[in-house]
Amino acid sequence: MEITKTQHATATVLALSGRLDGLASPALEKEIDAVLAAGSKVLVLDLSALAYVSSAGLRVFLTAAKKSKTAGGRATFVALPAPIREVFELSGFLTVLDIRPDVAAAL
């Protein structure tokens, strides 16, 4: 999985591409922790190029959302491809996480 970081005025966007499984999850978790430690209050996860997410990946998403909220900010998930949206729906994530159509809507 590749992670591309873009810094905006008030938000940090992490664009994920490829497969987010148990082997890729620790790197993403580390990246998210670094973003939150740097004081970014708005974390945007762009999933438009994400092909797969496993249970380990979903746990990283849930942890990111919880940590962001605890830090007084938010984590927003944008541009979910159909297979990822299906996994989010199955897990109830569509109702508990902040989901928006694209990066612009999350900034």
């Binding site: 499984d21 148990g22 620790p26 797969y52 496993s54 249970s55 380990a56 996994v87």
Partner: peptide
């Protein structure tokens, strides 16, 4: 096992 990062699952 999952939280010990030994296994991973999907449907």
């Amino acid at each position: 096992l999952a939280l010990a990062n030994r296994i991973d699952t999907d449907p």
